[in-house]
């Protein structure tokens, strides 16, 4: 394992340990997801057909809202625990820290998404098992794009005024392609069609992921400089 990857890994490991001890973010996020299900249910009413047509949008609405809360916090933790200086003073390429933070965020998002995917069928009486393997592909591509921009913007907004407001205001317009692509692909997958039908959307998501990831890796060092 090269030194670069090891440094990224240390960041992931540190975050996982902190989270395991305090459990402050993940518990709240999971609880938030359950609340979302309630709200969706109240908003749509008991009619099954309505839920089914709206399901791809609802799923991603849930992921995005959880992402706005979770990703926005990822660097705030460093700020609150006075670890920012430590990150800034870390020797070597700063993009390793970005990669580590990104991996940690993808992990958190994956847990929340898994929870929602278990809860949705239970609460709405749906069966997603058949579509699950294909759905995972869409989820992975969409989540990576969301987290790549969210991690970068989270690092920026952690150090500015009105961050809770500014983070979604910056993130959501930038995520329009990911949202459109992911919702459309999810729609195709949940309709029982093979992944090839959604190929165009998967290409779009993959290209978006590459672009966001490269921009994040390149520009992160400018964000992390002394505040």
């Amino acid at each position: 394992m090269s030194a670069y990857l090891r440094r990224a890994w240390i960041v992931v490991w540190k975050d996982v340990l902190t989270e395991r001890r305090s459990k402050e973010s993940l518990n709240a996020l999971l609880f938030f997801s359950v609340l979302l299900l309630f709200i969706f249910q109240f908003a749509l009413g008991p009619e099954r057909a309505r839920v089914e047509t709206a399901l791809p949008g609802l799923l991603w609405l849930g992921f995005i809202l959880a992402g706005v809360l979770g990703l926005g916090r990822s660097f705030l933790v460093e700020q609150e625990n006075d670890c920012w200086e430590g990150l800034v003073l870390t020797p070597g390429d700063k993009s390793a820290i970005y990669l580590g933070k990104l991996a940690g965020n993808v992990l958190v998002m994956a847990v929340v998404e898994a929870a929602l995917l278990v809860l949705f069928p239970v609460f709405f009486g749906l069966d997603l098992t058949g579509a699950l393997p294909r759905l995972v592909v869409v989820l992975a591509l969409g989540t990576l794009g969301l987290a790549a921009v969210g991690t970068l913007f989270g690092a920026i907004t952690a150090q500015v005024r009105a961050r809770e407001l500014l983070f979604p205001v910056l993130l959501l317009p930038a995520q329009v392609p990911v949202l459109l692509g992911a919702v459309s692909a999810t729609e195709i997958v949940l309709a029982g069609q093979p992944l090839a039908e959604a190929a165009q959307w998967l290409k779009l998501l993959a290209a978006a992921d590459v672009v966001y990831l490269v921009v994040g890796l390149l520009t992160f060092e400018f964000v992390l400089e002394g505040a």
């Binding site: 290409k203 779009l204 290209a207 590459v210 672009v211 490269v214």
Partner: peptide, 8 residues
């Protein structure tokens, strides 16, 4: 980035 966008 240009390659990814070009592919798209």
């Amino acid at each position: 980035i240009v390659a990814a966008l070009g592919y798209l």
